[in-house]
Design a binder for these strands. Structure first.
Length: 276
DNA sequence: CAGAATGATTCTTC
DNA sequence: GAAGAATCATTCTG
């Protein structure tokens, strides 16, 4: 239920002493309207503003332009969303005010007329109901077009394929390290994914995507990745052996690039090239 | 600028 | 549901 509208009706009730039961006849919640409401709420267009107040929203839009991280490409989106939100709210306010004014106007007219002819509460209720429904349908249209605007905005700005950014060098380093040191079973558990995600400052599903892509691409062309495999094999081996190596450094005169040699091509693929 | 690399999505399969 | 496979859309590189 729309709070503002409700309070308007309560006000009318106070002034006129009439029941507003009639106004609640929208009880069977229109699924279409519920869908719109839910979406607007989910998108943060309606509902409580984060931080509160439109000033905060404007400040957030301004601040996001100044922040240096990956939110730069989102600043445009945020700004546009804020714009939509503001338009939505001012329009909504306008409608509610108009509804209020119009209802009061009609009530006054009816009261005038009640001096000259008897007017049943039923009739008043009916009038209020008509007005309410009329403005509800206008609100519905507003919500509809706001939803459309948000959808368009989303598809334009938040389609990840449009705004793809390569992961940082450091992140791919970490992911590759894990991949090549678990080549026999390059399927990180949920916990491992979470840890990798945290280390790389990416999401878990991005980690999943990365491993999905990596596995398929590695398998498709093992030869192409041989060099990379050796590199990371050496790297992880060196890291693992680092503490020990320091102690026995004096006899490290053998091959530097094959501390973990012989493991590649790895044994995780069967003769037909499929993952085990 | 063409082609490779890469992250994300979609569809299929199990 | 997750993994594989194909594909898309963007970014990087020579």
């Amino acid at each position: 239920m729309k709070p503002a509208l409700f309070s308007v009706l309560c006000e009318i009730k106070e002034k006129t002493g009439l029941s507003i039961r009639g106004a609640q006849e929208e009880d069977p919640p229109d699924p279409q309207l519920m869908r719109l409401d839910n979406m607007l709420l989910a998108e943060g267009v309606s509902g409580p503003e984060k931080g509160g107040g439109s000033a905060a929203a404007a400040a957030a839009a301004a601040a996001s332009g100044g922040s240096s991280d990956n939110s730069i490409e989102h600043s445009d989106y945020r700004a546009k969303l804020t714009q939509i939100r503001q338009i939505y709210h001012t329009e909504l306010e306008k409608y509610e005010q108009a509804c209020n004014e119009f209802t009061t106007h009609v009530m006054n007219l009816l009261r005038e007329q009640s001096r000259t002819r008897p007017i049943s509460p039923k009739e008043i209720e009916r009038m209020v109901g008509i007005i309410h429904r009329k403005f509800s349908s206008i609100q519905m249209q507003l919500k509809q077009s706001t939803c459309e605007a948000v959808m368009i905005l989303r598809s334009r700005f938040l389609d990840a394929r449009r705004k793809r950014r390569n992961f940082s060098k450091q992140a791919t380093e970490i992911l590759n390290e894990y991949f090549y040191s678990h080549l026999s079973n390059p399927y990180p558990s949920e916990e491992a994914k979470e840890e990798l995600a945290k280390k790389c400052s990416i999401t878990v599903s991005q980690v999943s995507n990365w491993f999905g892509n990596k596995r398929i691409r590695y398998k498709k062309n093992i030869g192409k990745f041989q060099e990379e495999a050796n590199l990371y094999a050496a790297k992880t081996a060196v890291t693992a052996a680092h503490a020990v190596a320091a102690a026995v450094q004096n006899n490290q005169t053998n091959s530097p690039t094959t501390p973990n040699s012989g493991g590649y091509p790895p044994s995780c693929y069967q003769s037909d090239g499929r993952l085990q």
